[in-house]
Design a protein around this nucleic acid. Structure first.
Lengths: 329, 329
DNA sequence: TTGTAAGCGTTATCAA
DNA sequence: TTGATAACGCTTACAA
């Protein structure tokens, strides 16, 4: 059998409650006794049963997280950042993958709630289909949305400031001499994609860039490759191709290379996220880096704050990473 | 208050135990009653408190996993595969990041064990420094090592068959006409790196490739870039550069490009893992794809099997993915 | 088949 | 300050 607090109490010659108090420090305990209990605990190799403790205290020291797809390289970095914050505090992360499916997502959200997580961090699969499960569960456990968010709901959200990101990008594009730009985005239900789509036009206009109709497709590299074909079919290329994320941009770069179009010579290309491979692309990709560590810290801060405050939407400032895909012409 | 099984029992007009039995199906229960209980449960929106259940049954339906660094793109894919297997079974994954530090790793392993996970999947940070914590915990909870493994211990392991991988690579290199090859590896304590280093020479010899002294450095893209400098300093380039993983290979490609050396024209390059960006490199990278889904399934199979069997080391066959970095000369 | 009651390992309440 | 005792919500002997 595993050694329980009863064994420790017996070895230290005190009651179970005293042992518990000495170990958790919940209430004051005699100097001598405290030492005796702690010694007994280490001698026996006692480690608290967190399940039993959780049942009693209603705290698991565990945060649940649901991501749309962990193999999307944006999320591992975010998970790492959150894990780092939690680790400092001796809490753990229960991670789930929604397989880009709102039904799976809902089941994962409930599974986590049933495990009594202290809080839930969710990057919703869909602005629409994710809403029901998310708002329902928010009545039971603190919820914060990250990166993406569902529509029409009073749930906290933390993410990057897309408006600022697009401003940085369009400003930079204007500086390197671009006059025309086109956006390559997604038709997906993800909110980040939507915001970037909505903000692109105004941001471009503000910096004197004229824009053509955006190209919208599915999330992923393949779409980027195909977008190049669609763009070429339109006739003359724009000066700049702005992609809503790095993966699409990597596809665009590949498509342009296949078509023998030089970057940044004939057209400049930008991404969004700085996903770790942007720097390795050929040419290295100019992109907007998300403040992962800040995003992580804000998520936890919101979860830990006392309930009942006003809904918060926290957009954190990104930074522009200039690389060769827009320079060295 | 949340609705408990007592509420369901009361609503259905039965005892708590009957309600429990009707819900879990642990023991037979009257036809009528079963229906009444289930109806009451759904009517009240009852969901089991898994913490309480776990305390009683000693099963959490939760698997713990510790990876050296989740932002290493090999792991998210593996995590995804494991998550998919678990999800089918209504189990969850408690994921921890060891921050490439054996001390952090040890603390995470204990945190997971304290949460009474049903099993532990660990990709050890170090062949040496990870051994103590891992063997110690294996006495409490089923443990399986994945990808990497510690030295001198009788713990199950599941991973890719490195010997087969190197055979595929060297065979292919011989076929495309390479006569000389050099390995770019790591001095790291990771077992995968070690095995690939040890197996490279024999595998190459078997296919008539002559090899020079391997280049060993730190894990990561940067090392690949620098390895190119070191290689050029040696004088004539080999026909083939074999990298122990894709990230190093991406660095090598970048270094070669910077030096104006054409791939595959002047030298061919291979990676290992097929990490999702290998296909996007310029040129697309020939590599060895790990059988993630199989590896995931085997890990869970080993964890779920009755205790006390012999130690197993399961090496699963990888597949060769041929791309332009070794062809189209 | 059903109900009663004990107990999983903790922590919180209440007296002493 | 300390100890006995009752929960936390569930499952499982044991009895009926």
């Amino acid at each position: 059998m595993r050694v329980t607090i009863r064994d420790v109490a017996r070895a230290a010659g005190v009651s179970v409650s005293t042992a518990s108090r000495a170990l958790t420090g919940a209430r004051p305990v005699g100097e001598q006794i405290a030492v005796r209990v702690r010694d007994a605990a280490t001698a026996l190799g006692y480690r608290q049963n967190r399940v039993a403790s959780a049942l009693r205290t209603q705290r698991t020291d565990t945060i649940g997280m649901v991501v749309p797809q962990i193999s999307n390289p944006f999320y591992p970095v975010l998970v790492e950042a959150i894990e780092r914050c939690l680790g400092d505090d001796n809490r753990q992360l229960l991670l789930c993958d929604a397989q880009r499916d709102a039904t799976v997502e809902s089941s994962r959200i409930h599974a986590l709630a049933d495990r009594q997580v202290d809080g839930l961090i969710v990057a919703p699969v869909s602005t629409v289909a994710s809403a029901a499960a998310l708002t329902a569960i928010a009545g039971e456990v603190p919820v914060v949305q990250v990166d993406r968010s569902v529509a029409d709901t009073a749930l906290d959200w933390v993410g990057v400031d897309d408006v600022a990101g697009l401003r940085l990008l369009t400003e930079h594009l204007a500086e390197v001499g671009a006059r025309t730009a086109v956006l390559v985005g997604t038709v997906s239900e993800s909110s980040a994609g939507r915001t970037r789509l909505a903000e692109f036009g105004p941001a471009a206009a503000r910096h004197g860039l004229s824009t053509a109709e955006p190209l919208l497709g599915a999330y992923g590299v393949e779409w980027g490759v195909r977008a190049v074909d669609q763009l070429r079919a339109r006739g003359a290329l724009p000066d700049a191709i702005v992609c809503v994320n790095d993966e699409i941009a990597l596809g665009v770069l590949q498509g342009l290379r296949a078509a023998g179009i030089s970057v940044p010579g004939e057209v400049v290309v930008t991404g969004f996220d700085d996903n770790g491979f942007a720097a390795l692309a050929d040419p290295p990709l100019t992109t907007v880096r998300q403040p992962h560590q800040q995003i992580a810290a804000e998520c936890l801060r919101l979860l830990d704050r006392p309930r009942g405050g006003p809904t918060r939407r926290i957009a954190l400032a990104p930074s522009l990473i200039v690389r060769a895909s827009t320079t060295l012409r």
